[in-house]
């Protein structure tokens, strides 16, 4: 059924190919003192509102029943993906509870395309034996990479930064301009007066030195 659906939508870059359909690797629990359970796992492409598969998304359905086929309600099922990270590991995907029909459903989003090795595990409950089932699905596409939504008023915000930068630059230019202009103008305006003053001071010093020399002449004679 799923393969048929995939074939229908292949031309529209379909996400799911494959063997998701292969229902169920089910196992029987045989421990003494507990009721045997069976677990079946299927991975079906998730359909959008128009009935087209959503790229990279699978719905994992785990069906938990007793040995006699009676569904087990409200039992926790954990889902895993087998990954190869320094050796094969089960990476926890999520958890769901079974409903009245014994089905626990979980939406699985595959980050990478390719073969997805999936597992469902019933950890057991008082009187019920733990159980595990696996399945695999071949995906042509993973989920689309995350794209940040455009920042609201983003253009205004970036324009604001540029405007602020221009404003700050203008203020610095004015401040430094005022300082430089003041320093330059004051120095230039005062330079002749300072020179005159320096000359006067220098003349005064010379005459003072001359006076001192005169006083220091031996015998009190006035020298010229």
């Amino acid at each position: 059924m799923n393969l048929k659906l995939l074939a229908t939508w292949a031309s529209a870059a379909l996400a799911v190919c494959a063997a998701a359909a292969s229902p169920a690797v089910a196992q029987q629990a045989t421990d003494q003192g507990t009721t045997a359970t069976t677990l079946a796992l299927s991975a079906d492409a998730r359909m959008d509102s128009r009935g087209r598969p959503v790229p990279g998304q699978l719905v994992l359905n785990a069906t938990l029943t007793q040995a006699d086929g009676k569904p087990l309600n409200n039992r926790v099922i954990n889902f895993y993906q087998q990954v190869d990270l320094l050796g094969p590991h089960d990476a926890f995907v999520g958890t769901a509870n079974t409903d009245a029909t014994g089905v626990a459903a979980l939406l699985y989003e595959a980050p990478q395309p390719g073969l997805q090795q999936l597992k469902a595990r019933f950890p057991g409950a008082p009187g019920y034996a733990p159980q595990e089932a696996g399945t695999s699905a071949q995906l042509k596409e993973g989920i689309p990479p995350f794209q940040a939504e455009p920042i609201p008023l983003g253009k205004v915000a970036s324009g604001l930064s540029v405007g602020a930068l221009l404003l700050v630059s203008a203020v610095w230019l004015v401040l430094l301009g005022v300082l430089v202009r003041t320093v330059t103008a004051l120095r230039a305006a005062g330079a002749p007066a300072r020179e005159r003053r320096a000359r006067a001071r220098s003349t005064e010093n010379i005459s003072q030195r001359g006076g001192a020399e005169t006083i220091s002449q031996p015998g009190g004679e006035v020298s010229t």
Partner: peptide, 14 residues
């Protein structure tokens, strides 16, 4: 002091 000599031009600039 920037050559300040109490001149009208300096007052004006300042």
């Amino acid at each position: 002091a920037l050559n300040w000599a109490d001149l009208p031009r300096q007052h004006q600039v300042l």
